[in-house]
Amino acid sequence: MTRANRRRAEWLMTAPSVLWLSMFFVIPTAMVFVMAFRVPDPYGGLGKEWGLQTIEALWRGSYGPVLWRTVWMSVLATMACLAMALPVAYWIARLPKSAGRWVLAIIVVPFWTNFLIRIYAWKTVLHIEGPLKQALVTLGVVDPSTSLLFNSGAVIVVLIYNYLPFAILPLYAAAERFDFGLVEAARDLGAGRWRAMASVFLPGISQGLLTAFLVTFIPMLGSYAIPDIVGGTSAEMIGNKIAQRVFSDRNLPLASALAAVLALLMLLPAMGLLWSPRSASRRGGGRGA
């Protein structure tokens, strides 16, 4: 096959997805930034004129606390996810192969049920008359009048619940490739159990840790349905603000300005993602995610 032919075949196969994603992903994402400079239409939607009104509204709207809450809740929930996923990934990786596959399947199966129903299940559990509340009241841990729902605690628990498997899968993938002989070697050389874990196992699965962090943290930043269903006004995240601007006051420019802020927020860890494969190959480490 001649070089020109090969080139044409490559274009034929690449063009459809590239064109589609340019049209429905790149252009819309760019619009998020551009539309922040439109003025809102008083009747809802996008105004015709350009101006800085929306940016001013963004300042005046005091979104600072929401932004801050979005970040700290996501960080907390991500850390909790990693802390729970790490021993589980380790456990599965050390099981016999077939048993490990079964456990993995059992972990993933609940996630084939609808996303909203997984959230709603927690509403049932945390409900004022739900099983958890009743148990805690019986044990005398909480007062009958406290609500387990509609606070940042509930949001964090449900965030953890929904993203835990996404943390377990990459950690397991990394742990499964890990040579556990190294841990034995470290202990043979006198390292205690925890020391061996920290100095051999964790560095060995660092690529998996990074992936697990990113695939939980970034979507958490953009959470909308979870705080909307189990959080109250005191636990709103930036996703809720975007949705409110779209659905209650139809202020699309302000919504896109907020979305632009969210995009910039998640760009920080996304940089890490772009940077990581290169840094990994420099260390001669594992493969990218």
């Binding site: 429905f24 819309p28 994402t29 959470s223």
Partner: peptide, 15 residues
Amino acid sequence: LVVPDVLMGISLLLL
């Protein structure tokens, strides 16, 4: 794959 749903939703709505 890495863009949160909210962002994708609002950007498509704008389009």
